[in-house]
């Protein structure tokens, strides 16, 4: 096969406009100042949290008896807690756990949410009605209440917390997926695929999934921020992640003791600040992604 010079095309869509929708979305995303700021905050946090054991001298549960409830210093940058553990190390390990819980629970809730949405939209009117009423019901109770009830049954620890948060957060997604798939079902190419005998798995995963990818990506980003908050809230109330394992929430839990709250503010203010910063940054990224994936945003 020889390579010939490309023939001049007369395609009217040629030129700078030929970038694919994904490339254009990415372009829009990087033009968004808030989204870039979000990335600038999240990436260093991610790096620090994932590599800290290589460069930080203290381990999260190592006890330094000479530094009990000591404020920030050259050795312990962010101070130490009531049993002489380094706050910086616990903060980084806590970030690891908080992010692990958030990412895992979002992954699970995406699978559940997509499948429930798919079943509702392709399962016929009766199934649809039943599933959507169940979703309505799951959204009636205030999320925190639901979370508490589930957590009281599941108990504390990393796996139960992931389970509880993912069980709580899929209904919103399944509703969005259902709306998208209902619309997609009537499109010509899906009708054609059906006419040619495509089964449900083919319809869902060859046609449905790629066309929901924007919903899933935006949901995943924003939900990670939400899951971090839910985990922190649970651990703050003494459920969720139990000590001695560190998480941002259970570090804040220390401040429920008046002594820590009043006299050792570094033990709870740093995790609080990192928590809010991370959540804000992820929300910025999520908002940026949502705007970037919205095809109408090029028009304005």
């Amino acid at each position: 096969m020889t390579i010939t010079a490309p023939a001049p095309t007369i395609d009217p869509t040629a030129g700078p406009q030929t970038k694919g929708p994904l490339r254009r979305a990415l372009g829009r995303f990087f033009e968004n100042r808030a989204a870039r700021a979000g990335l600038l905050i999240v990436v260093p946090i991610l790096l620090a949290v994932s590599t800290y054991s290589l460069w930080w001298p203290f381990s999260p549960n190592a006890i330094d008896l000479r530094a009990i409830n000591k404020g920030p210093s050259a050795i312990h940058w962010l101070g130490s807690d009531g049993v002489g553990r380094d706050v910086m190390a616990r903060l980084l390990q806590g970030g690891r756990i908080s992010l692990l819980v958030a990412v895992c629970s979002v992954a699970i809730s995406i699978v559940i949410g997509f499948l429930v949405g798919a079943v509702a939209s392709f399962g016929g009117r009766l199934v649809d009605g039943a599933v959507m009423r169940f979703v309505d019901l799951a959204m009636t109770l205030p999320p925190v209440i639901f979370l508490l009830v589930l957590a009281s049954i599941a108990g504390t620890g990393i796996a139960p917390t992931i389970l509880v948060i993912s069980l709580l957060s899929w209904p919103v997604l399944s509703r969005m997926v259902r709306a998208r798939l209902l619309e997609l079902r009537e499109r010509d190419f899906v009708v054609a695929a059906r006419g040619m005998g495509a089964g449900l798995p083919h319809l869902l995963f060859r046609h449905g999934l790629p066309n929901c990818i924007d919903i899933l990506v935006v949901y995943a980003t924003l939900q990670i921020a939400n899951a971090i908050l839910l985990e922190a809230g649970l651990s703050f109330l003494g459920l969720g992640i139990a000590p001695p394992e560190a998480s941002w929430g259970n570090m804040l839990n220390l401040a429920r003791s008046t002594v820590v709250l009043e006299q050792y503010p570094w033990q709870w203010m740093f995790p609080g600040a990192v928590l809010v910063l991370t959540v804000l940054a992820i929300n910025f990224i999520g908002d940026g992604l949502r705007d970037a994936f919205d095809p109408r945003s090029d028009l304005s």
Binding site: A232, F236, V276
Partner: peptide
């Protein structure tokens, strides 16, 4: 208002109390 929406209730409660 953006900061207000993003900060979790337990943190505003702790900061307010402090």
């Amino acid at each position: 208002s953006f900061v207000g929406i993003s900060s979790p209730a337990f943190l505003t409660a702790l900061l307010g109390l402090y």
